[in-house]
Design a protein around this nucleic acid. Sequence first.
DNA 1: TACCAGGTAAAAA
DNA 2: TTTTTACATGGT
Length: 298
Amino acid sequence: MHATQPVRFTVSGPYDLLLSLRAAASFGRNRYDSADDAPEVFRSPVRIAGTPTALEIRQLPTEPGTLEATARPAAASAAVTALARRLVNADLDLEPFYELVRDDKLFGPLTTSLRGLKAFRPATLFEMLVTAVIEQQISLMAAHHIRGRLVERFGESVDDLIVFPAPDTLAEAPLEALRECGLSHRKAEYIGGVAQLVSSGTFDTETLADLTDDEVRTRISAIRGFGRWSAEYLLIRGLGRPDVVPVDDLGIQTLLGRLLGDGKRLTPDGVRRVLEPLTPYRGVAVFYLLAGTRLGLA
DNA sequence: TACCAGGTAAAAA
DNA sequence: TTTTTACATGGT
């Protein structure tokens, strides 16, 4: 049942793939996830049944609610569709969010300009867990460099892309090799540890999708190296939970202080206070503010 | 040069 | 129980 033809699927609510790609690029170009020569196509290196695969996703110009996914090498249609739906966050319907903020002074115009924008999600939650550890405390710029070295050293090539390292690869990697990518000794331990939990099956990332936000918080925080920030980072970025905000996040505290506060960095309680009216789309709202800032709209 | 950046666990108080 | 400290990289 391998798809030699592209598979098609529909997305819930408004969606603009090109805008979403532009926003993603503005957060820091990731040369392993996109191509310069075809900016209207989302290309992502993924693993399907263990095989490194290049997944390409397009939006049909005449039928914006329908997307088309192609896998090379060809792979099972069901797997391709499921993965593509995850990457573009196909199940999230933005319309209720737009309704909620339609008359808001800040969010009304912002959501009109950015109509159809969604954050991409990574192919695996394991990738998100590792990325969360890398981004702890240091600047995003520094984190990008470290992550790039990790992917180059331990990932697998497919076409001109590199698939994020598999859990067993990082589980078997010597701590010293992880440190050579620029990680602290402590972070190398965290990453080796979570890689062993996932590769051994002790921690099943796929079952997290069935749990509530709070249940996921508890499960993630139980892993060494993962506190509240990392759990919430995984919830919003990895699982696409629309109402979650990492209130400990320095970048978010600073941004919300500037746009919704008195200009100074907010405390975690301050973040909760200013976002309260945006429930149950607080996480999506923060993403729109971040994207708006990056794209020069907010 | 020193300091800060999308934190966390462990030690010290 | 609460507060302090060490940590790696890269930009300013």
